[in-house]
Design a protein around this nucleic acid. Structure first.
Length: 500
DNA sequence: ACATTTCAACGTCACGAAAC
DNA sequence: GTTTCGTGACGTTGAAATGT
């Protein structure tokens, strides 16, 4: 099984399902150690009858043939693109089938469909019980949620969480999740825990995670409280701590890279290209790249020399708020990379070492007239403040369970807001939350420092435009509609404006 | 989410007893 | 008299737990 969240969930669906209908079935599972995918030939035990590969393995043609020669059947349950259908394995892959229109269904989804087919064959209905795992797998694998079938199963899965480990993870995060099990909360508070275990956990952590997904009824001694607790509870807590550990490691990495950027004066470039060979853990490259691009407000390429070769590989991040909205396309158009694969603003790449300097020059030339670190927002709605009311907020909030990958919560610009100085304040324990009221709606901006406040709000009345998102603040049993500011602009400073 | 508090592990240093 | 070894106090560090 693959070592990513979709790999874990798809394998768990398969094993849990098979065990539920064939209680005496003998299943052995094997974890992939690194980022490799598919079957490892040497790890297939000699007495094996059947190998099933969830979430990968479509293109392991030679391995399929080798296993076939040993008299072992292979079933591939995959959603990754590949050249052709293997002749020596049974391949279930939505990308290969012209008959099956849904190309945005992850490994967990394909495994579910496979179980559904067994259901039909046996005249039973057991696969649906595992839709919670289907949901987590598809959310984790960033499937396009505009795909109606995928979204249907995801929402259905989240309606009833059956898996004891997902339950334990939700319990661990109950403070943040606040009882709302929707796509956003799974994506922000559950999936990152699984990913943290995969990135910075050790072998034992990963095995415990899989056991937990497999509904193991093992208990673990919890020394601090002197009790035995279910492995699911212990693992959920462990993953939470691993997430903290990951954050610390990430921040340490960011510090090192920042130092390098300064020493090498890399900010003179429009796109940051930083060599991180030997100074940054491989598993953290993407996370660190995120932080760096956010901090310096520009796209970043963290590169690393591939062992014993002249090729550099690495992790790229676009600056989403910036002028370049599709960094991958931008780099592909330069035509110098061996490949760029992944999402628009988060992807991996490889390039010949000798081309790096040239690429840097090309980028600087292409962007020579562009101010790279300026924020530019693509908003979904522009609403003049006099048309903005609480009804808008309620209407958007009603849809909160739909927000997901490619179905993002709308980003809204409110224009022509006029506020008097005395209606603007810094609140909170740390005095770092900006708040003002306009036409009876609270506008909030988090993390706004006192010195910034003094510098910017220097005058009597301010005309501004803001971009941000609608939300409803639930506090003390009350629901208060509010607008969370992401960024704002002051257009004009005037004398005080009287309402009457 | 993030800050703060608590806990556990580790290294090191000093001291003294035992070994040489 | 010198070296080695073990022990325990102490401080440092990072992990884990808790609190809001």
């Amino acid at each position: 099984m693959d070592s990513d969240a979709d790999g874990y969930t798809s394998s768990a669906i398969l094993i849990n399902y098979l065990k539920s209908i064939f209680p005496n079935i003998n299943i052995k599972w094997e974890l992939q150690e690194g980022k490799e995918h598919g079957i490892i030939l040497d790890k297939v035990p000699s007495e094996t009858n059947l190998v099933i590969v969830p979430d990968s393995g479509s293109n392991q043609y030679e391995i399929h043939s080798a296993l076939k020669k040993r008299g072992i059947d292979v079933i591939v349950l995959d959603h990754h693109e590949c050249e052709k259908e293997s002749e020596d394995a049974i391949v279930v892959n939505n990308q290969l089938s012209p008959e099956y229109p849904n190309k945005n269904f992850s490994g967990a989804g394909i495994v579910y469909k496979f179980c559904k087919a067994i259901d039909e064959y046996l005249g039973i209905n057991k696969a649906d019980y595992f839709l919670d795992l289907v949901a987590v797998g598809n959310i984790a694998d960033m499937m396009d949620m505009r795909e109606l079938e995928t979204r249907y199963y995801v929402l259905k899965g989240l309606e009833s969480i059956n898996n004891s480990f997902i339950k334990a993870l939700l319990k661990q995060q109950e403070y943040s999740i606040n009882g709302v099990v929707n796509i956003t909360n799974i994506a922000f508070y559950i999936v990152p825990l699984i990913n943290a275990a995969i990135r910075v956990g050790d072998e034992e952590d990963k095995i415990n995670m899989m056991k937990s997904f497999l509904e193991s009824n093992e208990t673990v001694y919890y020394k601090k409280k002197d009790i035995d607790e279910p492995i699911q509870t212990a693992t959920a807590r462990r993953l939470y701590n691993l997430k903290n550990k990951q954050n610390r490691l990430r921040d340490k990495g960011v510090e090192l890279i920042e130092k390098r950027i300064e020493e090498k004066r890399l900010l003179l470039n429009k796109v940051l290209i930083v060599n991180v060979t030997d100074i940054l853990d491989k598993n953290l490259t993407g996370l660190v790249a995120n932080q760096i691009s956010r901090k310096y407000k520009r796209p970043v390429l963290l590169i690393r020399q591939k062992e014993k070769s002249t090729i550099f590989g690495g992790s790229a991040r676009g600056y989403e708020k910036g002028v370049l909205k599709d960094f991958k396309q931008f780099l592909q158009d330069i035509n110098q990379f061996i490949f760029c694969e992944g999402h628009k603003n988060a992807f991996g790449f490889e390039i010949e070492a000798e081309k790096l300097i040239e690429v840097n020059d090309i980028i600087n030339d292409l962007l020579k007239d562009v101010e790279i670190d300026v924020d530019e927002y693509e908003v979904d709605f522009i609403i003049p403040s006099e048309q903005f009311d609480t009804q808008v907020i309620y209407n958007i909030h009603k849809l909160k369970d739909l927000w997901s990958n490619n179905v993002e919560e709308p980003l809204i610009a409110i224009t022509k807001i006029s506020v008097n100085k005395e209606d603007i304040q810094l609140i909170g324990k740390n005095k770092n939350t900006l708040k003002f009221k306009n036409r009876n709606i609270d506008f909030i901006k988090f993390n706004y420092s006192e010195e910034e406040f003094k510098k910017v709000f220097n005058g009597e009345c301010f005309v501004m435009e803001v971009v941000g998102r609608c939300s409803i603040n639930q506090w003390d049993g009350k629901e208060i509609p509010q607008f969370i500011i992401e960024d704002f602009n002051i257009l004009e400073i005037k004398d005080k404006e009287w309402i009457f």
